[in-house]
Amino acid sequence: MRATTQPGIEDLYREHALGLVRFALLLTGDRVAAEDVVQDAFLGLHRHWDEVKDPGRVLAYLRTAVVNGSRSRYRRHLVARRVRPEPLAMVQSAEALVLAGEDRRALLAAVGALPRRQREVLALKYFLDLGEQEIAAILCISRGAVASTASRALTALARQMREES
């Protein structure tokens, strides 16, 4: 009889690391910090692997860990010892800006100026394409708060873009 096995941590890393690093890049604005945050998320999962009861929740756990890790990157010197990104590092990243193109610079700058939670909601909604319920679970806020935060963020962006033009 062949035993069934669950995917190992390495399999999960291969499957999800790229998307999570990209997501973390939007939150941290820094490539190295993003990789470190994702690394810590997987190591945290590894530490509690035996306690995982619902494998279907693993990705949600990792996303939550990435959000929390991105928030605390300043205080965890093990996470980002060699990196001290500025709050608006995403819009200061030369490589990212060049590749993003001229047309998007103003928009990215406006996103970078938003409050942290608004940036998180936008990244979860428009990069990961998650629904309000999932976003609410990841950020530990209500579904209504997700909707209102997204609305306020888009309003602020629209206002900023109008002023830019």
């Binding site: 941590i9 390495e10 890393y13 690391a17 790229l18 690093v21 990209r22 997501f23 890049l25 939007l26 490539r31 993003a34 990789e35 470190d36 690394q39 997987f42 995403m90 990243s93 490589e95 990212a96 590749l99 993003a100 193109g101 998007r104 928009l107 990215l108 996103v111 936008l122 990244a123 428009y126 990069f127 888009l154 962006l157 629209a158 873009m161």
Partner: peptide, 27 residues
């Protein structure tokens, strides 16, 4: 604006490529 935001996110995150990621333990 939502579409522009999606495209901007894709452009920025496109700088991260799978082949450039270090291994789980290497990092």
């Amino acid at each position: 604006l939502e579409d522009e935001l999606r495209e901007a996110y894709r452009a920025v995150t496109g700088t991260v490529r799978e082949q450039d990621l270090p291994g789980l333990y290497e990092q």
